[in-house]
């Protein structure tokens, strides 16, 4: 087996999520064993003749039969991915990377803070927490999107919201009158979010600036640096520490991350051009 060579997967379903985001559901063409991963891990997705990029896995970790990726069409590869349809074939290498601290969070409140497409890498955590509900305290999802039309997994969130054992608070950066939800950046939800600061694990995923300001608010609420986790993004060509591109200080984001505790990367976080 060569870690640099992808396995082929067939598109089972293409779901348009918002105007620029979509989900693909994939099935392995090479094995019947399914695809197992841990929440927070990513795959390198290869599109024939175009290239390969890292994309986090967005499916349910308990359902190994189907591999789910949600992404936004912004770059060369993702724009090509946006054209995929049922039965198309892509190459997959993975899963790679260190997952979200779902084991460390057992017995604690879990606060998920997502911004934009940053909800996609956190979705497997939600699935995991809900299917192991008794192991966790309160579960709170704070999600910030650009506009109501940009809310990812909207139907699913609405359905989840009807459960009584998870708090979901959504906010958008801008809206017009027919929106009855919150307007304001996601950080404004933190001061009054219902969690116990001394017994909470926070997992944050979104643009780096959003994560920085979220951390500021969480520290104000009294969360410790070890209990705040972020998922980092850098250029990646291999996923296994061979290409060098994703280095962040002494860390390789691909294999030492992408999930880090704030404590681990505090000395680098927000420093320029690291």
């Amino acid at each position: 087996m060569d870690v640099m060579v992808p396995n082929t997967f067939k598109v089972q379903k293409f779901i348009k999520e918002t105007h620029d985001t979509f989900t693909i559901e994939l099935k392995s063409l090479e094995t019947k064993n399914g695809f197992t991963f841990e929440p927070g891990q990513f795959n390198m997705i290869y599109i024939f003749g175009i290239g390969e990029i890292p994309i986090s896995i967005s499916g349910d970790p308990n359902k190994s039969g189907i591999l789910v990726h949600t992404t936004r069409a912004v770059g060369t590869v993702t724009k090509e991915m946006a054209k995929l349809k049922k039965d198309d074939i892509v190459g997959i290498r993975g899963p790679f990377g260190r997952p979200w601290p779902i084991k460390e969070a057992i017995g604690s409140d879990v606060l998920l803070v997502a911004g934009g497409i940053g909800l996609a890498p956190l979705r497997p955590v939600i699935y995991h927490l809900l299917s192991n509900r008794e192991y966790y305290g309160r579960i709170i999802l704070l999600y910030g999107a650009r506009t109501p039309q940009d809310i990812l997994y909207r139907k699913e969130l609405e359905k989840l919201r009807s459960r009584l054992d998870i708090d979901i608070i959504v906010t958008v950066d801008r809206a017009v009158k027919n929106w009855t939800g919150n307007v304001g950046v996601v950080t404004t939800l933190i001061p009054r979010a219902p969690f116990d600061p001394i017994n909470t694990i926070a997992m944050i995923c979104g643009p780096e600036i959003m994560m920085r300001y979220t951390i500021v608010e969480l520290l104000k609420r009294g969360l410790s640096k070890e209990n705040i986790y972020v998922s980092m993004e850098r250029n990646m060509k291999c996923g296994v520490g061979f290409c060098g591109h994703c280095q962040y200080g002494t860390e390789f984001i691909c294999k030492d991350g992408p999930v880090f505790s704030f404590k681990e990367i505090e000395h680098l976080f927000g420093k320029r051009e690291i």
Partner: peptide, 22 residues
């Protein structure tokens, strides 16, 4: 350090995946 590139043929039926020093 290295990077990877696809070298495709004219008809887009074949692509060679090339790893290069970066």
């Amino acid at each position: 350090c290295m990077t990877v590139e696809d070298y495709t043929d004219f008809f887009k039926t074949k692509a060679e995946r090339i790893q290069k020093w970066d």
